[in-house]
Each structure stands twice: as structure tokens, then as C-alpha cells.
Amino acid sequence: MWKQSDTKEAQPQPHAQPSQTMPLRTPASVARERALIGPTLVIKGDLTGEEDLVIEGRIEGKIEFRKHSVTIGKNGHVKADIYGKVITVEGEVQGNLYGDDQLILRQSSTVRGDIVAPRVVLEDGANFKGSIDMSGKEAGRREDAASPAFPGPAGPGGTR
């Protein structure tokens, strides 16, 4: 969990030449349905749907695609909380991000908000300001909240 090596995206594999008996497009090879909000579109309101979503335009409101992936492209500007299975940010987001599976902040991304996801990929260069909640660990937090986080210095600090 949380390791980049765990979260590498599948790279497209070179296709074998289809034989005459092989169907050109098997159900598995059919591209998943994907909605695109183009760069000239401006939407104010809530968005929900049952397909993957790519945003290159501007959205203000709430985006809820819990069972699908949401990608904010390089031209995308979003001011909204986003719920998705896998959320990938290449553009700008001002809002909280809730990824059920994974959240990816690309190098080009600018994000102002908090992140909740079991796996997070943060590319160096991403402009991120906010909190990353490492889900599931909160319960393991110290039982005695009144006790100090650390025992503190046993004596004066030395210089080495």
C-alpha cells in the first residue's frame, strides 16, 4: 500500500496480429464507455454517472462517479468534491478527492484539498496543498490521547 511500485498503471501491450478466425474485437477489448467534458464546456452543478469520465472543461459543484474512474485532464479546472473509483488529476482541482481504489496526482496537477484513498500516487512536481488521509489507520491511533506523542528529551541535546 502506498508504494509507487504497487500502483503502476497497466501499460498498453502490443497487439498480436488477429488471425482470420479471431474476432477483431472481443468483449474484453471493447473500450469502456467514457464521457468527455470538452475544454470549452463550463458546468455548474452536480455530476453523476455510470461511466468513466474525462474532464477537460470547467466544473463547479460535485462529481460523483463512485464506481468509475474520473480523470481531470490537463485543461480541466474543477471546483468540486470528487468521488470516484480511480481519480487521476492532471489539471487543477479545488476540493476534496475521495478515491475508492486509487488516487493519482500527476506532475502537472494542482490540487487544493484533502485526499482520502487507500492508495495514492503523488508524482514529484505535483502542486499539492492539503491532507492525505491514510484510510483505515485512524483506528490504530493512540488509545490514550492525553499521553504525549513522544517521551520528550531525556536531557540536553548534544551536537554530533
Binding site: M1, W2, K3, Q4, V120, L122, F128, K129, G130, S131, I132, D133, M134, K137, E138, G140, R141
Partner: peptide, 14 residues
């Protein structure tokens, strides 16, 4: 992020 994931429940970056 990777380093603190082993110790932290929340990482806030400012």
C-alpha cells in the same frame, strides 16, 4: 509520502 505511510495516519502538505 511513501516514507510516512509507514508511520502516519495523516500527512498534511503545505
Amino acid at each position: 509520502l511513501n516514507f510516512w505511510s509507514g508511520y502516519a495516519s495523516r500527512l498534511t502538505v503545505v
